[in-house]
Design a protein around this nucleic acid. Structure first.
Ligand code: MN
Ligand code: MN
Ligand code: MN
Ligand code: MN
Lengths: 217, 217
DNA sequence: TATAATATTTAGGTTTGCCTAAATGTATTT
DNA sequence: AAATACATTTAGGCAAACCTAAATATTATA
């Protein structure tokens, strides 16, 4: 299996396993990678033989240590390139994902490490996601959902849980970018929408769906 | 044919056609791309059907206008990334080729153009090779081989015709990098080796083979 | 617990890009 | 102009990564 395809499978499994500790299911992997379930079955069987995942028929798959390291290193590359695209080339945070999705498969360790150094060894990508170090270690950063806050708390926006361009563009429009101060002023009982004030300015309402995708510290 | 493979074929054909105006031969393409001649026959047949090369059985192939543009755009990407690797990441000129060989296949026009801009729209890559503009136009730069100079001429070194790491490292050792002043002091009749002085310093001999791979203006 | 719904795998295909070995065409020598 | 050398193509195969349709497991529900 080419490094390109393998890295995408392992990354998808990593992501799904973060969501559901049991592991990643065939159908979900297929959805993530835009392929059919039958294709996934074939692929994960091979990845199992290769020793990068634990595969047992009809069970959710999990990554082996070897597989996990490959996944995390791919994530490291992805996020470093995203920083490059935003910080150096001036792209916006809603434009970078497809490019990083390709750049992440360029495998020259020296290139990755020099890139990291050139970027000042950033700890977070433009979406607020943590960048693991070159040994695959994530720094401990616990953020919470905006929807989990108590009334009248003020926090700093540090991340998002949805990376679709339309969501990102909407946040831009609202002035909700990483680093802003957000105060939770009201929780509407009817639909769980929330009234927030950004950097002390006049408040506005956010649907529960939107608030639920915003991370704070 | 994937853009990755296609771009490599077209680039190889472009390069070979520069050397031999008749076009590129099956065997030479195979050698360039490290595949077998039978594979090349298959591939060029398909590239012919696709309209990017002119293919006729048993004849050397040439690029169509469409194919030529793809080749040149790939060369543009390759050379821009090489500039990035040297200027921004601090790689040496003998280390960058394999990385650029992969990066050149990342196809996002906006990325390429922003990269070019970020690098200051360079006209030459770290090996002195010209970088075509985004429409595929090369600036006119005629350089000559060091071996074609008359005695006691002083020139500036502007390029090389051999890109192997060992050649590049040897030039480094000799202090022969792009931009230095070279004076041709002697042409040895016996073996056509040449005595050169770099930036006015004490001269040294270069074999004809080495001198023949050095370009000047 | 049987039945229905859903998930996963198997079977059988396709395309791409590569291979070796054999056949055929072209070019060079005697 | 034959014979030989060399280049190119054809034929037949293979592995990777995808597909659809059908079979089989698992899970949920009546
Ligand atoms: Mn990817
Ligand atoms: Mn990101
Ligand atoms: Mn390449
Ligand atoms: Mn170069």
């Amino acid at each position: 299996m080419s490094s390109y395809v393998e890295e995408n499978y392992l990354k998808a499994i990593y992501k799904l396993t973060e969501r559901n500790k049991d592991g990643a299911y065939t159908n979900d992997i297929a959805y993530e990678l835009n392929v059919k379930p039958a294709t996934v079955t074939e692929s994960i069987k091979k990845l199992g033989e290769k020793g990068v995942i634990h595969y047992e028929k009809y069970k959710a798959v999990t990554l082996t240590e070897a597989g996990k390291l490959i996944a995390i290193k791919t994530i490291r590359k992805h996020r470093l390139w995203e920083v490059f695209l935003v910080e150096k080339l001036g792209f916006k945070w809603d434009e970078i994902h497809p490019m990083a999705e390709e750049l992440e498969h360029i495998n020259f360790e020296e290139l990755t490490e020099r890139l990291a150094n050139f970027l000042g060894n950033p700890e977070f990508d433009p979406h607020g996601d943590p960048i693991p170090d070159k040994d695959g270690v994530f720094s401990n950063n616990k953020s919470v959902k905006l929807t989990s806050l108590a009334l009248n708390t003020t926090v700093v926006m540090t991340g998002i849980e949805n990376h679709t361009p339309s969501f990102l563009q909407h946040l831009d429009k609202l002035g909700l970018k990483l680093g802003v101060q957000v105060t939770l002023k009201e929780i509407v009982d009817f639909d769980k929408s929330v009234l927030v004030s950004v950097n002390g300015k006049k408040g506005f309402y956010l649907s529960h769906d939107i608030a639920n995708n915003i991370l704070c510290k």
